[in-house]
Design a protein around this nucleic acid. Structure first.
Length: 502
RNA sequence: GGCACCGUAGCUCAGUGGUUAGAGCGGGCGUUUCAUAAGCGCUAGGUCAGAGGUUCAAUCCCUCUCGGUGCCA
């Protein structure tokens, strides 16, 4: 018997360039959610992967003088390497060049051809041979290609169409019946209006592209990359219209597709329509997050202003990056990444608040607790209060409101710092040993609670904390060691201007 | 041009038809010493973009103006 697992997906990342912080963001969000659910003993499937077909990839590979597949192998490996660096635990990494996926795509195509949801037609458009792309009349600059400024030609190409228009009504009904299908709400209206304004059938094959999945019954066509890539969510779990793998039932329907806002429409319109055509249940939710700008600028290849996750990790550690990305900005909104803000938050939240709290308490625990693991303080008011926050924190994570969860957790950190100041354990040490122990016991348990809360976000830090919070469990009687700080304080960046001035 | 959304303390943002409009960060002042010179306390007097309207009462409702953003395959 199959039990349905909680199935989370990230988009498949296009292998036209090396991974940057934007890719990491989505995948980390998936990882945080997955870790949280696992900690509640909810079975989870997390799938990510790479999108490898299309003329762009073919072109890049040609420029580099390698076979397309070899190029894809390299970049795809870079992504997996980054997930490792970022401590992301996924269940399955799919590549659109995987034979099982390609077979699934072909079978889907044939099935829809048979049902009439895909039909052969021809596409007519204004084509620029330098761009290898079609343009609308409105996009042209003085009737020329907006990029090359050269004349475009009217070209017609045989292509297969998917009958997207047929699903206009069904999609609208679905949106109305499932108000959370497109999330967050403030991004959904655009999509709903778009569908309301009328859908046209879309081209789903190419005759000019060879690096793609061939249409089985007409191999001079390859399947258009979007159609190919979207299917991964199903084929990766064993979907094939000619016969599903038994695994498919435990994954489907997907619980949440995490996507960037730029591909929300593909996932909110085309993908559900494809599933309707296939008679497959729709995913429960598509959640679109925002973009990171870098120092206020859009990340772009031409500006070359990508932040490499590896560099940040190298200097500050994985957990600091994981923390920053989900604390700084409400998940869904756009945010700005700058080293200045990053350092500020690192020092204030991680080094000063949490790191120092942990350090001051662990020092006292080492000094004043006789290495005994204290009993859970049922009578402790603080501990009871903090414990009562857990459901709220969990709800926030499950609603993908990561920043809310972290904010609440940091209220706890702050509360504990205040409490230490109020109770002044260093004075109790001179006046009331018994009260001191009771207090430190409470604090140790509160820290365990915090460690548990931050675990999905900062798994390494959580385990380092846990290691020490087992105060006194040492069977051999060795005293607790003074541990290195969780987050060593970092100097704020010295600007060149500051040096010159004197 | 069409359709949405936004404009609240230096910065990032919460917020509600009704007593003195909030938080975090930064800044300023003070204070403790257990701790990573961290922590803790106090402090921001902001025309809630502007104008008009509805109302006993609007930052929150309506209209217009200005400024900004997104979507229109």
């Amino acid at each position: 018997m199959n039990t349905k697992k909680y199935y989370i997906t990230t988009p498949l990342y296009y292998v036209n360039d090396k991974p940057h912080i934007g890719h990491a963001y989505t995948t980390l969000a998936a990882d945080v959610l997955a870790r949280h659910l696992r900690s509640k003993d909810i079975p989870v499937l997390l799938q990510t992967g790479t999108d490898e077909h299309g003329s762009n990839i073919e072109k890049i590979a040609r420029e580099k003088g390698v076979e397309p597949k070899a190029w894809c192998d390299g970049i795809s490996a870079d992504f997996r390497e980054l997930w490792k660096t970022l401590n992301i635990k996924y269940d399955y990494f799919i590549r659109t060049t995987d034979p099982s996926h390609e077979a699934g795509v072909q079978a889907v195509f044939e099935k829809l051809l048979k049902s009439g949801d895909i039909y052969l037609g021809s596409y007519e458009g204004l084509y620029c041979s330098s761009c290898e792309a079609f343009y609308d009349e409105g996009e042209l600059k003085e009737k020329n290609c907006p990029i090359h400024g050269r004349p475009v030609e009217l070209v017609s190409e045989e292509t297969y169409f998917f009958k997207l228009s047929k699903y206009e009504g069904a999609l609208q009904e679905h949106y109305a019946a499932h108000p959370d299908f497109l999330s967050p709400r403030y991004r959904s209206q655009e999509i709903i209006n778009f569908v309301k304004s009328g859908l046209k059938d879309i081209s789903v094959s190419r005759t000019k592209v060879t690096w793609g999945v061939p249409v089985k019954s007409n191999p001079k066509h390859t399947v258009y990359v979007w159609f190919d890539a979207l299917l991964n969510y199903a084929t990766g779990r064993g979907y094939n219209p000619d016969g599903n793998s038994p695994d498919f039932a435990e994954a489907w329907p997907a619980d949440v597709h995490l996507v960037g806002k730029e591909i929300f429409r593909f996932h909110g319109v085309i993908w559900p329509a494809m599933l309707m055509a296939l008679g497959v249940e729709l995913p429960r939710k598509v959640y679109a997050h925002g973009w990171w700008t870098i120092n206020g600028d859009k990340m772009s290849k031409s500006k070359g202003n990508f932040i490499k996750a590896e560099d940040v990790v190298q200097e500050f550690g994985v957990d600091a990056l994981r923390y920053f990305l989900f604390r700084e900005v409400t998940f869904g909104q756009d945010g700005d990444f700058s080293m200045d803000t990053f350092r500020r938050r690192y020092n204030a939240d991680l080094a000063n608040d949490l790191g120092n709290l942990f350090s001051r308490l662990m020092n006292m625990a080492a000094k004043y607790l006789d290495h005994q693991l204290p009993e859970k303080p049922g009578e402790s008011e603080v501990f009871r209060e903090l414990s009562s926050w857990t459901p709220e924190i969990h709800r926030s994570i499950e609603a993908l409101q990561f920043s809310d969860a972290l904010e609440k957790i940091w209220q706890g950190v702050s509360k504990l710092n205040r409490l230490v100041d109020t109770r002044k354990p260093w004075e109790l040490a001179k006046t009331d040993q018994e009260a001191l122990k009771v207090f430190l016991h409470e604090m140790v348990w509160c820290l365990r609670l915090i460690a548990g809360w931050i675990d999905p976000f900062m798994p390494d830090t959580a385990s380092r904390m846990h290691l020490q919070l087992g105060v006194g469990k040492t069977a051999d009687g060795t005293p607790p060691q003074k541990v290195p700080p969780l987050f060593p304080r970092m100097p704020l960046e010295v600007k060149p201007d500051d040096i010159k001035t004197n």
